[in-house]
Computed example of a mutant assay.
Amino acid sequence: MPADRFSTATRLKALGEQAAARVQRAGRRPRRNRLTGRAALLALVLCSLVVALAYPTRQYLSQRSDIADQRRKAQDAAAALERLRDEKARWQDPAYVRQQARRHLHYVMPGETGYIVQDGSGVRAAPKGAQAAQRPWYDKLWDTVDTADAAGAASAAGKR
């Protein structure tokens, strides 16, 4: 009797059963490589395209934004120019110049009497801020002259 206890036929039968079991398991759940070589190459090409086109696309979008900003600034400048042309045309009219002189400089025509209505508080100097801007120009002028005179008198007294 040989050292081998099983015959060749028995061994072939066992190998066949094992192979049949493997085929049966493979039939239930096919085992394929999910990422094929072609799919990997396609993914690599797509990633390369995305990386290669990202910077130029960003530059393009940035430039389009800059162009839109410049167009908006040009439209604003054109509107400002139109307003200034209208204002220049108004200043060419002598009646408008007289109206502005009366309003802002408190000018009166010969033969007219000018009046400044005060609020009745008896306070001559207006407080600092927004109300100070509403005072007549000549009142502001005299206040600066008085301030300069007071400063000059104080420095002259200090030298004596």
Rank of each mutant, 00 (worst) to 15 (best):
A21H: 00
A21Q: 00
R22Q: 11
R22H: 09
V23K: 05
V23Y: 05
V23I: 05
Q24D: 03
R25Y: 06
R25H: 09
R25K: 13
A26G: 10
A26S: 04
G27K: 07
G27Q: 09
G27R: 08
R28S: 02
R29H: 09
R29K: 08
P30A: 09
R31E: 06
R32T: 02
R32D: 03
N33C: 01
N33I: 00
R34W: 01
L35F: 03
L35C: 00
L35D: 02
R38W: 13
R38G: 10
A39H: 14
A39S: 14
A39V: 13
A39Q: 15
A40W: 06
L41R: 14
L41N: 11
L41W: 14
L42A: 11
L42I: 08
L42P: 01
L42W: 12
L42C: 08
L42Q: 11
A43E: 12
L44A: 12
L44I: 02
V45Q: 08
V45G: 04
V45H: 08
L46G: 06
L46R: 13
C47L: 15
L49V: 07
L49N: 11
V51Y: 15
V51M: 14
V51G: 09
A52G: 06
A52T: 03
A52E: 06
A52R: 10
L53E: 08
A54W: 14
A54Y: 14
A54D: 07
Y55K: 10
Y55R: 14
T57H: 15
T57V: 12
T57D: 12
T57K: 13
R58W: 15
Q59V: 04
Q59Y: 09
Y60L: 15
L61M: 04
L61Y: 03
L61T: 01
S62F: 14
S62G: 12
R64C: 04
R64S: 07
S65M: 05
D66S: 13
D66K: 11
D66C: 13
A68H: 05
D69R: 11
D69S: 10
R72E: 06
R72S: 05
K73H: 15
A74Y: 09
A74H: 09
A74F: 07
A74C: 06
A74M: 08
Q75Y: 14
Q75A: 10
Q75V: 06
D76S: 12
D76H: 13
D76I: 10
A79Y: 02
A79F: 02
A79W: 02
A80E: 05
A80W: 04
A80L: 07
A80I: 01
L81H: 00
E82L: 02
R83N: 01
L84F: 06
L84N: 05
